[in-house]
């Protein structure tokens, strides 16, 4: 088994609070891996450690057999690790197209080019436009992000991550705040991603998780409780107790 993304004995301490407690996680290549757990379990913190948004107190992060613990975020992105944020982090005054071009330019390694105009880099624009069309954003390509409804903004958030053409994609509650109809479309888009792309997903909607994931890890109070295939997780009484039961999800 080869792993796309691993952690070894990862700890993160904020003052006296242990947000990540000895997490050793293995995400197989090509997996649709879900990370679930009650609110405050430290799921987002874990994502932040994986991407380099936060530095771990100790332990290591391994991306495709390479230790990236000390690498800054942008290097990890260059190595194929992209993410979305739980709360949109977008470019309010840019249009959808401009935002995505920004991300595409970065992947194509032309974002530092300072002489020819953006409009002269036709391939990047084509890439961005085709991504927008995949996500149904083409009609609003020229609307400033801040004027778009929340659902569309959420799609831009995803588009920015996909623009990196990641081999490992971390999705932090991608459907949060998206109307039900659109969230189904959203997951279809994610499901259509090529099998080589490894996906690690945080999601609260258990229907979506069980439909989408082929592997589930349960995080409780910063530590991994268990990891298994969906059926076994659903049957696990401990999981029911700490998560499914008291959080009220069916």
């Amino acid at each position: 088994m080869t792993y796309a993304l691993q952690t070894r004995n990862l700890f993160k301490r904020f003052g006296g609070f242990l947000a990540t407690n000895d997490v050793t996680l293995n995400v197989a290549e090509g997996a649709r891996h879900a990370l679930i757990g009650p609110n405050g379990a430290g799921k987002t913190t874990l994502i932040n450690l994986l991407t380099g948004f936060l530095e771990p107190t100790s332990g290591s992060v391994i991306l495709k057999n390479e230790d990236v613990t000390r690498q800054p975020q942008h290097r990890r992105v260059k190595r194929g690790l992209a993410r979305t944020f739980q709360i949109n982090r977008l470019f309010a005054d840019m249009t959808a197209l401009q935002s995505v071009i920004l991300a595409v330019n970065e992947r194509r390694g032309i974002a530092g080019h300072w002489w020819r105009p953006v409009s002269a880099h036709g391939e990047a624009i084509d890439d961005a436009a085709s991504l927008l069309s995949q996500l149904g954003l083409l009609e609003v390509a020229h609307v400033p992000t801040k004027d778009l409804p929340y659902g569309k903004q959420r799609l831009i958030e995803i588009a920015l991550a996909l623009a990196a053409q990641p081999s490992v994609l971390l999705l932090d509650e991608p459907a949060a705040g998206v109307p039900t109809g659109e969230s189904r479309e959203l997951f279809e888009t994610i499901a259509r991603l090529p099998r080589e792309v490894t996906v690690l997903l945080i999601e609260h909607d258990m229907d979506l998780v069980f439909r989408f994931a082929d592997r589930i890890s349960v995080l409780v109070a910063g530590a991994l409780l268990t990891e298994d295939v969906p059926d076994m997780i659903a049957a696990d009484p401990r999981v029911r107790e700490v998560y499914l039961g008291d959080a009220g999800h069916g």
């Binding site: 309010a92 840019m94 990196a164």
Partner: peptide, 18 residues
């Protein structure tokens, strides 16, 4: 364009690989 991205949302930019 990437400078404008940094001005508008410096936190997001590294996650795009910048």
């Amino acid at each position: 364009l990437s400078l404008q991205g940094i001005r508008q949302n410096a936190v997001r930019m590294p996650a795009l690989g910048t």
